[in-house]
């Protein structure tokens, strides 16, 4: 139990996927101008990340390793993620149209979210067991959701600030993210 707690805290705070590992920056900058969008994106990523990590680590352990085809990892994983996202979109449309309206627009973007593929590859590199992988994926996604929500909250305020013209938009957002990353470095001692 303690081992899982350590994985969760490390993945959310110490090794935050956005601020410490630089993955998922595109949606982090692209979908963070409104708090509602940020929450939707974060939840969609959480769902996709957990399911795709489960499927890819099963494939890695029971297909690629026995066949000694580990070099196919990148191609196989990205195809699985793309197919999964597509499937999730279709299922969501049928089962819960309301949820589809809220989260559907973010789903196609997730295929090229490097955080999803990144986590899938990282858990195989770290040699985590299946449960560990899923817990790690879930915690990482929560870390992403948290980073996105905090950042969106700040950016909504930032729009009101009087910033020099060339710094408007992305540059000031990046500098803000840098200061946030500094705050997250304070967690470094916990791990």
């Amino acid at each position: 139990m303690l081992e899982y707690l350590a994985i969760i805290i490390t993945a959310i705070f110490v090794n935050n996927i956005v601020f410490a590992q630089f993955l998922g920056i595109c949606p982090f900058l692209g979908v963070s101008s409104r708090l509602t969008n940020a929450t939707g994106m974060g939840i969609a990523v959480t769902v996709v990340m957990v399911i795709s990590t489960l499927v890819t680590s099963l494939l890695q352990n029971y297909v690629l390793v026995p066949l000694q085809m580990e070099y196919m990892q990148t191609i196989l994983f990205i195809l699985v993620i793309a197919a999964l996202v597509q499937m999730l979109e279709i299922i969501m449309k049928k089962v819960s149209p309301a949820l589809y309206v809220a989260l559907g627009v973010f789903l196609p973007l997730i295929t090229t979210n490097c955080a999803v593929l990144g986590v899938a590859i990282m858990v195989t590199q770290k040699g985590m067991s299946l449960t560990q992988s899923v817990v790690y994926a879930f915690a990482t996604a929560i870390g992403f959701l948290m980073a996105l929500v905090i950042f969106a909250g700040i950016r909504e305020q930032l729009e009101l600030a009087d910033v020099p013209r060339p710094m408007r938009g992305v540059p000031i957002a990046l500098i803000t993210a840098g200061i946030l990353a500094m705050a997250f470095m304070g967690f470094a001692g916990i791990g």
């Binding site: 601020f19 410490a20 630089f22 020099p164 013209r165 060339p166 710094m167 992305v170 540059p171 000031i172 957002a173 990046l174 500098i175 993210a177 840098g178 200061i179 990353a181 500094m182 997250f184 470095m185």
Partner: peptide
């Protein structure tokens, strides 16, 4: 700081701002 994570964000922010200024 500039080698660590926060420096990456801050430096890129300034570089983009400089690029935009020069282009304008």
């Amino acid at each position: 700081l500039f080698i660590l994570a926060p420096g990456a964000f801050i430096m890129l922010g300034f570089l983009i701002a400089i690029y935009r200024y020069l282009q304008a």
